[in-house]
Amino acid sequence: MEKFEPKILAFLCNWCAYAAADLAGVSRFQYPSNVKPLRVMCSARVDPLYIIKALKAGWDGILVSG
């Protein structure tokens, strides 16, 4: 049986989490490729509606980091 690969949308704060993800990339650390990063200027900018709409659109999980 094929391993389930979840689709994850990550809302990342420009000033910390996105910078960390970027640094991980630059430093060639490996992280799962099924996480789609979405840069926001602040994690407080993420409206709960975005999360609900993303789940309705078919994403399996949402990560808000900042």
């Binding site: 690969e5 994403w59 399996d60």
Partner: peptide
């Protein structure tokens, strides 16, 4: 996070 969501399985909206 990926492992946690993988464990929960696919979300059928």
């Amino acid at each position: 996070v990926t492992e946690s969501i993988r464990g929960q399985g696919e979300l059928d909206s």
